[in-house]
Design a protein around this nucleic acid. Structure first.
Lengths: 348, 348
DNA sequence: GCAAACTGGCTAATCGTTTAGATATAGGGG
DNA sequence: CCCCTATATCTAAACGATTAGCCAGTTTGC
């Protein structure tokens, strides 16, 4: 079934059929009706491939994710999918599958950059997507990779380091400051921090937020109460155990872990030490993962609007594809977060 | 940069360039070299869209998922992605986003069918994907929808009901029989069952497995010990509470919940009743979700090779696209599962 | 020595759309 | 009645690849 067949049946030219379908030129009601009839009769669907060749627009948006198994990824895709569907685009998904190697040694980072730029050029020059959304937190100098491909490219979840690519993030710094402030409000003063991998940018930003909250409150963070984790539950446990041993005489009354996994590890350590949670020590997490609803008591944590990030990223991408729109370079949208009260923070 | 430019630079015809790129016809070393040189020099990348129009092959595989937020979805996509990358295809992702309405009333089911068939025809006739992988468990009469589209279509995760579409599943029945047998082996005889939503096919299959395990062991399942849940944690809790109240005098020594969420709910109920876990009552789950590693003690459960399902589905799809291959209709691959021992099943 | 077979490469048709430019028809103003 | 404009439609040229079919030159077989 091609446009030609429809044209023949409707006794008009292919041009007219095209005009009816796309509404690009007025067509007399009578003929328009004939065309519509013929389309319905034949079940004709325009061949998107031919259309793309002619218009140089595939209506596909490339979504390049670091790892689909990453906790945030599917939520972000969910948001992208919603907006993209509304605006008539499709998602061309490319999974870099680099979860295992995400935080690794320097020589691997070079390989990763290579992998990313290969995937990117495949999407843009091979599959000819109209725009690309990069989902992930690989933030070191990604700018070198995504140099002017001639198509809009949006970074979702982490912030673009250079000034000409757009990104959609959450208020990393703000959110962790809020988390600490929440502990202050509950009366806590001696607060420990379990960080994420120190060289990753979320860990750095969140640390900055912690410090600014302390500063605003006119308090000072005791360096001995800061322990470096690696985002995994196990280090949450060991860091907390460390704290409990070394600070035995002057225990912190609360601990802020930079993600839920480590927070849960910390909870285990607190209980294993025979202390009561949250009466003796309060715990605050970050991410609002599914698991945080399953531990007991429910973890008090910070929720990020991941779906919103995806949606906004898609919006940004699609907006730049509208006929009369400019490049919109360097825009950086920051979405708000909110605290999810659970049962792991006690008033003191 | 088009093939024409390359041809001009290499002083050959476009045909020759094409032959060099695709290796479809022999080309003299000298000219081949000139072509390769020209390609390198210009950074030429063939336009996949034009290629697709001519060859009627987009090299895209449509992946239609019921909901990307569903627990299994990303694992399955992960597997698909791995195989698809190896074989040079891309994933065109379409998310139906029907998680909320997945198990609902009959009139919604009609809407769902409509949504699915719309998305399907958009993928096949609009985007012109070479094959479709449907990921999900919407299994009632999907056959009516996926009638001969002329492209291979594979069902992943659930089984195709009709005889001419392929599917890749896990051994649903077998796995739950194994789970029950595992309880038998630990010495349990009086075993309760918390089912999933009764009209869904996983629930039915798993029930069949339970019954066959009982039959094989020469035992009979006490009907009073079967409670209907809805896959969510809350019903796991309430079903267990029910059991504890009504069977007070003759408590089961173990309970098999048809997924981890309900199993965790049951664990809570057991503890809230002041009973010891697993000494007084053992619990067995199904799915090996992330949460099951986070409850204490770690939930004993059944793991399904979701990544393997995705991989096999992609294999099946790609295999049918190889030049000299037949339709392979009606194949049904069943992947094995395994029990993940945790701390919630005690010997008795 | 000549026909047949083979080789490597080129020309041009083709895939299914969109759209610029040509054409046809009608209406309006003088 | 003629010219001009506006409107609706059509014709045909793109878009950028693949590939059937042809052609020229070389080898092989007898």
């Amino acid at each position: 079934m091609t446009i030609k067949d429809v044209a023949t049946i409707a006794r008009v030219s292919t041009a007219t059929v095209s005009y009816v379908i796309n509404g690009t030129k007025p067509v007399l009601p009578e003929k328009r009706q004939r065309v519509i009839e013929a389309i319905k009769q034949t079940g004709y669907q325009p061949n998107q491939v031919a259309k793309s060749l002619r218009t140089k627009k595939t209506n596909n948006i490339g979504v390049l994710v670091e790892d689909i198994l990453g906790f945030s990824t599917s939520h972000i895709i969910n948001g992208i999918s919603e907006h993209v569907e509304q605006s008539g685009y499709n998602i061309l998904l490319n999974d870099l599958r680099m979860l295992g190697s995400l935080f690794n040694r320097y020589d691997q980072i070079v390989q990763q950059k290579d992998k990313i730029s290969k995937a990117l050029s495949l999407l843009v020059f091979g599959a000819r997507v109209d725009a690309v959304i990069y989902v992930g937190m690989f933030d070191r100098d990604i700018s070198g990779i995504i140099t002017d491909l001639g198509k809009p490219i949006i970074i979702a979840y982490s912030t673009a380091k250079d000034s000409h690519t757009c990104s959609v993030t959450y208020e990393n710094e703000q959110a962790s400051a809020d988390a600490v402030r929440y502990l202050f409000d509950a009366g806590h003063r001696r607060i420990a921090v379990i960080t994420g991998l120190a060289h990753t940018s979320p860990a750095q930003l969140r640390m900055r937020g912690v410090l600014s909250a302390f500063k605003d409150a006119g308090l000072v963070l005791d360096g001995a109460l800061v322990k470096n984790g690696d985002w995994e539950r196990e280090t949450g446990y060991s860091c907390m155990k460390d704290l409990l041993e070394h600070e035995k005489d002057n225990l912190p009354t609360a601990v802020f872990a930079m993600n839920d996994l480590m927070a849960i590890g910390a909870m285990d350590a607190i209980r294993d030490a025979g202390l009561r949670l949250p009466e003796d020590i309060s715990v605050m997490g970050f991410d609002n993962r599914e698991v945080s609803r399953f531990v007991w008591p429910r973890l008090t944590t910070v929720e990020i609007d991941l779906k919103g990030i995806g949606f906004a990223a898609a919006q940004l991408a699609v907006a730049q594809l509208e006929p009369g729109s400019k490049k919109a370079k360097g825009r950086n949208i920051v979405l708000p977060s909110r605290i999810i009260p659970g049962g792991t923070v006690a008033k003191v």
